[in-house]
Simulated assay, not measured.
Amino acid sequence: MTAPQRSDDRAGMAWLMGDMLLVTMMTVLVKIEGANYPAIQLVFIRSLIGLVSVLPLAWRHRAEIAGTRRVGGHLVRVSCNTLALSCNFAALTALPLALANAIGFMRPLVVLVFAVFMLGERVGPIRWIGTIIGFAGVLVMVAPGNVPLNLGLAAAFGSVLFGSLAVVQTRSLREENTTVLMVFYTVGLTLLTAIPAAFVWEPVALGDWPTLLAIGVLAQVGQYCFLRAYQSTPANVLAPLGYLSIVFAALTGYFFFDEVPGWTTLLGVIVILVALQLTNLFDRGPRRKEPEIDAKL
């Protein structure tokens, strides 16, 4: 790996870490407000607040937005993100925070697989081994056989599936302007959630608006960090790093919701961190040039 490539990878990892921190803060607020409002309503309010924040950027970059040739790719990405975010908010409301986040840690493995088969990205054996070991750590935390079967669990796995597809689609649009991606995402998310939210709408108490506003702002800034990460760095490099969000989740559950991590959670954390360290230590070989992405994606 050349020095510029390593520098690009470090920058992408830093952007992704920023996104994970912001999303963790947002998760706390969603968990609190999810007890009072339907998940789809929270998603709509979050996207509406984000829409207001990107309007100045949309006007400034109106030429790039009007000139994009990847409208179909944007629509697919926004649809997947809408489903993923709605499922995620529902899971956070219905499941314990630790369980909902533990299931979400399956996403890096799914992203890696999708990146190989849908984008043609090349993944060395070390990264496959490291990611599979990390996935084993997730299984230790979830403790298969002890997880209750309910709609919240289905929503959590739905968030993993659609969220992974959205990540891969974001990678396929890496040549697009970041602002264009944000505008398409925010406008599309608002439109796609408006009608469902109207059917289940609950009046919002005046005192809840500051929290809902914070959800929207944190989500929007986090989205920008996320886009910068996947535009600058291959998905298969960032995928294992996503497991580090377990540290944020464990601390969040402990300090905000009195969730004391069990021994399975601690063991899972150790397994995941070891997998990450070994992957970064041994995967130092030269990276081959990535193939061009099919414009139809």
Rank of each mutant, 00 (worst) to 15 (best):
A214G: 12
G50V: 06
T27C: 05
F162R: 07
T211I: 14
F89P: 04
I32S: 06
S232D: 05
Y37Q: 02
T190M: 01
D9Q: 10
E33M: 12
V200I: 11
T170A: 02
A39M: 05
P38M: 02
V168C: 04
S86N: 10
A136R: 10
C87F: 15
L139R: 06
R69E: 13
H74D: 08
R107V: 13
M106C: 15
S86K: 03
E176M: 00
A214K: 11
L151N: 14
G207E: 14
Q41I: 04
T279F: 00
F157S: 05
F44L: 05
G158C: 10
L165G: 08
F157D: 06
L57N: 06
T27I: 12
A197Q: 03
L51W: 14
L109W: 01
V140M: 12
I195G: 07
D9F: 07
V200M: 06
R46L: 08
G130C: 08
L42E: 05
G120M: 00
F117D: 05
W128R: 08
L83R: 01
F117M: 12
M182E: 08
V111S: 04
G73P: 09
D283F: 09
L83N: 01
T252Q: 07
S7G: 00
A91H: 13
R174I: 00
Q41G: 00
P286I: 07
G242P: 11
V78G: 00
A250T: 15
M118I: 14
A214V: 13
L278C: 10
T264V: 09
G72Y: 11
G34P: 05
W59V: 14
V78Y: 04
P261G: 12
V237I: 15
L48V: 14
L165C: 14
V183H: 00
L165W: 12
V237K: 08
P210W: 12
D208N: 13
P240T: 11
V180S: 00
T186Q: 05
G34A: 03
G124S: 13
A198G: 04
